[in-house]
Nucleic acid binder design. Structure first.
Lengths: 225, 225
DNA sequence: CGACTCTCTGGAATGCCGTTCCAGAATCAG
DNA sequence: CTGATTCTGGAACGGCATTCCAGAGAGTCG
């Protein structure tokens, strides 16, 4: 405590919305959506809950901001001169991987249509739909369908991300579901039983992309005829 | 009140899982997902929270059971001898209408893949995909894509269902979003701005069906070639 | 250099939630 | 009648988001 001895200005690093959102993302990635509480967040930032509320209006805004940071980082930067189909596939896969890395985004995206992150994706999809040569009145439907499909997969992936960190957890999970499907009532669930074995060796990412291709094929077919 | 005169056996009506789920659906429909609490539910059933827990393991199970009741009622009974495309469209529309009537189902369905209600829909879709003549290895993808699209729309509808009961609320809501889109940065959101006006006069239900048709077209195109 | 103000902090308090506990009422089996 | 069992509901308990508020730090002005 020499002269005035503020060895650090006021704090090591002042609180800021940016630092709060960053810490929130860290917690969300580490312990999931349910693990983010203002108490934990305050502890991690070495402060109290009240201080956080001065920078952020509440939990909803915090989750929204966290989602926006990740999604914006994901949506920007992508394929260059490829075909519109390729750009859409690339964007979709980048989103899929981002949701895989941060499962909480899935639930958040699915729950907040019209918000900035969803809009960003919609815009990117729409531009490529336009580049695809889809006539103007059909563009909205085409872009919305792609978006809804992506959000649907996102929500399911987010829900499935319960305690499967490793590759092994994942295999066990698929084996379990596959076995459960194979044991369903044959009269009530013939189809599900029939595809149960396909589930065991299935690759979520490839399956997701195949769905994108299906929609793209539908878009192409619809404005060809 | 003849011999022993228990005009009501034990209670006017004994508590039962069925009655609890029924009451929960009533509350969910009236005040939404956030309004369902065990206290409110207990008051409505003229009992205490403890009694409810004897019949139901917790909130998750309760929401699941409520969803199952509504979805099962929706999925059963539908078109008879129509084409597979027609059956799929009919099933999808029935689901859409059910979600419109009970928006909380949307969030619930999107959040619980592999659970009974989702599986029921998957099974129905899969059978029709099969009837469509899709080759075996492609059926899983086709049915999953339809399901994911439906769940995506469901989630968005559930999220949008914030305080728009009447037709007028709905029009105001669309006008507001449309205006917001039209005021976006022209450089960042050219596409979204361009389709903003289409949004104003758009019909969610028709748009949803158009998306289904797009996926169906894609399915048809994919196994034709 | 003081005093006043404004930004920002963080600990304490509030009110609601899901869930658990438990004493006891109603019913049933013998 | 008696003991066991099923079922009830009010009273906790711990945790949550959010609000309150006394006051610390840092600029500003006379």
């Amino acid at each position: 405590m020499a002269t005035k001895a503020r060895r650090t200005e006021r704090r090591e690093e002042p609180l800021s919305r940016e630092r709060i959102v960053e810490a929130a993302i860290g917690i969300l990635d580490a312990v999931g959506e349910g693990g983010l509480t203002f108490r934990v967040l305050a502890e991690r930032l070495a402060t109290g809950p009240g201080a956080i509320y001065w920078h952020v209006s509440g939990k909803e805004e915090l989750l929204g901001a966290a989602t926006e940071v990740v999604v914006t980082g994901t949506v920007l930067g992508g394929a260059g001169g490829a075909s519109p189909q390729e750009v859409i596939r690339d964007l979709a896969l980048r989103l899929f991987d981002a949701i895989d890395a941060h499962p909480w985004i899935g639930g958040q995206l699915a729950r907040s249509p019209g918000q900035s992150p969803t809009l960003q994706v919609f815009e990117r999809l729409g531009r490529q739909v336009q580049a695809l040569g889809v006539p103007r009145p059909a563009r909205f439907t085409a872009a919305s369908t792609l978006l809804s499909y992506i959000l649907g997969v996102a929500g399911q992936n987010a829900a499935n991300a319960h305690g499967q960190e490793s590759e092994q957890d994942r295999t066990e999970f698929l084996d379990g579901v596959s076995a459960a499907w194979a044991n369903l009532d044959p009269d009530a669930y013939p189809f599900t039983r029939d595809v149960a074995e396909q589930l065991r060796e299935h690759d979520d990412r490839a399956e997701f992309l195949a769905g994108i291709d299906l929609v793209l094929a539908g878009i192409a077919a619809s404005h060809a005829g």
